[in-house]
């Protein structure tokens, strides 16, 4: 089950007192349990910084990040992370990568092998368990990365432009897959992307950030039923709305 996330008046500065150098300025955002939220915005708008704070890699300069009512603290297995370039451990096979989290949490061998096998089936990689990452295509690597992030059964899934490096066709295939996985294992998802289309296609809510300093510009709730038609009139109208919010 997912957990709610509360971001309360968070400001993040990396060095100077210069107002424009603020990575994030006074951001407040509430995300419900099991909600799928996308963050879009131009480079330097602080969307990755925010994600890293929720993950626990960074601490806010002021304000706080609460997860299920508790401060976020340091990175932990309750928040699964998927990176842009899969970041799979090249020295481990696909299934060993998926087992990495449970193994280090002390899950017994038999149990974690069974869980990992289930996840392999979930991301449809049966037959590729014993391949090394370099033997897998970009899309397959991201499937392993998602399975690896799910292996700890986290409450929250944080995704930092996970499909940004994939080609267009693989990308839309992976979007469908992600929705299917999200239906199967309910999680709170925060999805950072450059693509308005992708954000609209996937999420319950799209949050728009603007740079210099990083600020929350707009929130657009998407109530269209899934699977969504990218060419539908309502979809295009929402696209225009987000586009205007960014520029």
């Amino acid at each position: 089950m997912g957990k709610a996330i509360a971001i309360e008046h968070v400001t993040k500065r990396f060095n100077d007192e210069d107002e424009r150098a603020l990575a994030l300025k006074d951001v407040t955002l509430h995300i419900a349990a099991n909600e799928f939220v996308s963050i879009v915005g131009r480079s330097g708008c602080g969307k990755t910084t925010l994600l890293n704070m929720i993950a626990g890699f960074l601490q806010p300069s002021s304000g706080q990040v609460l997860i299920g009512g508790e401060p976020a603290g340091s990175p932990g297995p309750d928040r699964g992370m998927v990176f842009q370039h899969a970041a799979l451990f090249p020295w481990l096979t696909a299934i060993q990568n998926i087992e990495f989290g449970p193994r280090n949490q002390g899950v017994p061998r038999k149990q974690r092998r069974a869980q990992a096998q289930d996840l392999i089936e979930l991301v449809r990689l049966g037959g590729f368990e014993r391949k090394y990452p370099r033997e897998l295509s970009g899309g397959m690597q991201q499937r392993v990365a998602i399975a690896r992030a799910l292996a700890n059964d986290p409450d929250i899934l944080l995704m930092d432009e996970p499909f940004g490096a994939l080609d267009e066709l693989t990308r839309s295939e992976m979007q469908l897959e992600l929705l299917r996985i999200w239906e199967a294992r309910k999680k709170t998802v925060i999805f950072v992307t450059h693509s308005i289309m992708e954000a609209l296609y996937l999420s319950d809510r799209v949050v728009v950030f603007s740079p210099h300093p990083g600020r929350l510009r707009a929130e657009i709730t998407v109530t269209l039923p899934r699977p969504r038609q990218r060419s539908s009139h309502e979809f295009m109208a929402l696209y225009e709305e987000i586009h205007r919010a960014i520029f």
Binding site: G80, F89, N104, A149
Partner: peptide, 24 residues
């Protein structure tokens, strides 16, 4: 990025050294 990935999967410092830094 491997260190970050391991951290987010809940590995301890020792585990990161033995299972990420060493093979890497």
């Amino acid at each position: 990025q491997y260190v970050f990935a391991a951290q987010s999967l809940g590995a301890s410092r020792r585990q990161i050294f033995m299972q990420v830094m060493l093979p890497g």
